[in-house]
Design a protein around this nucleic acid. Structure first.
Lengths: 108, 108
DNA sequence: TCATTATTTAACGGTATTGTTAAATACAGT
DNA sequence: ACTGTATTTAACAATACCGTTAAATAATGA
């Protein structure tokens, strides 16, 4: 079970973030098809996938010659849980901000 | 408004993640006090805080000589919203996994 | 086994990141 | 203005990261 900051590190690169979002939307996708999300060589994508794998963000399944990748739900849930564990902090603040904005809107 | 991968980049470093968690738990804290979360020189902490500031994760308030730091709620909410926007994906999968684990538990 | 397709690993160069110490800046009190 | 406290900026070295091309590995089918 990788630590959260490792997950964040995996998601910090724009290419990897795009790959993960692609996988989240389209579901399981081959390494080759993922090349299309970034204008980048195969080896570059392959190494990004390795980093995502090592961080526990994605997992691999072999289908003939192809490597099929998919997001590990627990990885996203771990991020979610972190935000939830501090929800009281940010929720109340954002609510207050929204009320201020709403009040300003009404004054006009 | 910084992009999400920039926020992830800011949170990817263990020291910065520790700083943010500290701020989330203890609330506003001075730069000096934050030195205690990591065995590291003042300048190192200061630059980490700058990175967090540039990523929009924290903000600064001046109190005499001290710089007081606090987390920007919107930053955490942005992360939260991203997980929510894909909740259908990971929620269902995790639910299924939990059901399997529960079923196995009952079989014993 | 040989050829084909799909992907990964290796080696390399350029750039970015991170920590250190020394110097600079900011502010308060005398 | 001068001193002390708090923090940041500058300069430097070590390491990590990212993309490229070339070579290696994996799996399928003739």
């Amino acid at each position: 079970m990788p630590s959260l900051n490792k997950t964040f590190a995996a998601l910090s690169d724009p290419t990897r973030f795009a790959i993960v979002n692609q996988l989240l939307v389209d579901g399981e996708t081959s390494a080759g098809s993922l090349q299309q999300v970034a204008d980048m060589s195969g080896p570059a994508i392959s190494r990004h996938l390795k980093i995502l794998r090592n961080a526990g963000v994605v997992e691999q399944r072999i289908d003939a010659q192809r490597r099929m990748y998919r997001v590990r739900p627990q990885a996203i849930m771990a991020v979610h849980n972190w935000t939830i564990s501090h929800q009281e902090f940010w929720q109340s603040s954002v609510d207050r901000l929204e009320q201020v904005l709403l009040a300003e809107k009404e004054r006009k």
